[in-house]
Design a protein around this nucleic acid. Sequence first.
DNA 1: TTCAACACGTGAGAC
DNA 2: TGTCTCACGTGTTGA
Lengths: 224, 224
Amino acid sequence: MHLVQAGCRNTSRGYSMQNGLDRRLTSITKPKLKADAKPFAAFKHSEAERIRRMRINGQYATLRTILPNLIKMDKASVLAETIRRVRELKKAVEEVEAVCCTVVPGGEDGLSLEYSGGVEEDGQDSGAAGLVFIKVALSLEDRPGLMLELINAVKSVKGAGGVGLIRVVKAEMVTVGGRTKTLLWLQPMPPPASSGSSSGSGDYDGEGVLVMLRRTLRVVLVKK
Amino acid sequence: MHLVQAGCRNTSRGYSMQNGLDRRLTSITKPKLKADAKPFAAFKHSEAERIRRMRINGQYATLRTILPNLIKMDKASVLAETIRRVRELKKAVEEVEAVCCTVVPGGEDGLSLEYSGGVEEDGQDSGAAGLVFIKVALSLEDRPGLMLELINAVKSVKGAGGVGLIRVVKAEMVTVGGRTKTLLWLQPMPPPASSGSSSGSGDYDGEGVLVMLRRTLRVVLVKK
DNA sequence: TTCAACACGTGAGAC
DNA sequence: TGTCTCACGTGTTGA
């Protein structure tokens, strides 16, 4: 109950890094007597709390060195300035990204789809008439496992027979300031040659695939 | 001495915003009796401390909302992630600024001087042969009063007679993400027509002025 | 059980 | 004087 007020106060308001780690009952061993158990536990507890405080205060010290033009140095002001700065920097990155890095113009959801009905790079026809190559560009806040999510989303686009309709040919990612710009090169897969001629599929619903793809990718975009 | 342990614990580890502001001895008035003075002071003290804690915890809550991909939500982890993010964003802004916004190539100190010996825009000769127009571009962390510092630095460049050698014709600043890009258009002033012909000054040390100017501006750049 | 994280009330320095 | 900020040890809770 606050019977012991530790000697080291270090309240010089200098906001310097160093702290305790001072002279103290070092190398404590667990007491065998039951009477000593409680003071020992109390000491361990207060010591753990001291270490926790030191860790947090160390982060404050780091923030104080990182943030420019800090007027007030107290914790609340440091946190407030930190929040302001993070928002400012985030906005700056997004703005400058919008100006400098737009590869393919996308909609307001940051999702852009480009497709062609021609022949792909290696000159090999995919077999799906009217839709053989899709290029997807999207830009969003980075998160772990994003690429996996995107690929799974692409693979989840399936036709009537439960067979995948699109395969990922190439993928590129570039992250700047926590935002990720992703490029996907996709290739529609030919419908299963179950009936009719092998080169048929004249009724292949390329537009439908695109709609499904866009809807599926949008789920990934708005997630979290 | 911890005789009263407040009722509201709110230790649901939910890291939600709301907190106390709860039922409590409201609308306390200062007691007249001396015996009540101390408990009253203690209450006011603990209450003030509670408000302070709430303010700080509110900042933590805000940080938890604006930081993406937070795995651990405890205070130390939030601060650590904040530090990481600020550094990441700052670097991103600097990099993208270096790529997109370089107006005049500068040295490693971010200071670039350009000068011409011709005639300035309005066709009026400054009178100083060989150095009539200086354009300065510099990029550094923004700070309040920076422009004033720069102008004073320019004005502090003086000749033998203690007279100013340079005047500021135009100044532009643009700040992005806390970094400021500054453009200064300077004009050397003619040396005082104390002796010789009025159009003389053939021995005007334009190079010396540039050296002094660069040295003076560098002081502003490395400050703080 | 121990451990980690938290809110609390309090003593004390700074302004 | 009073107010503000901080470090401290403690009680408590969930894992």
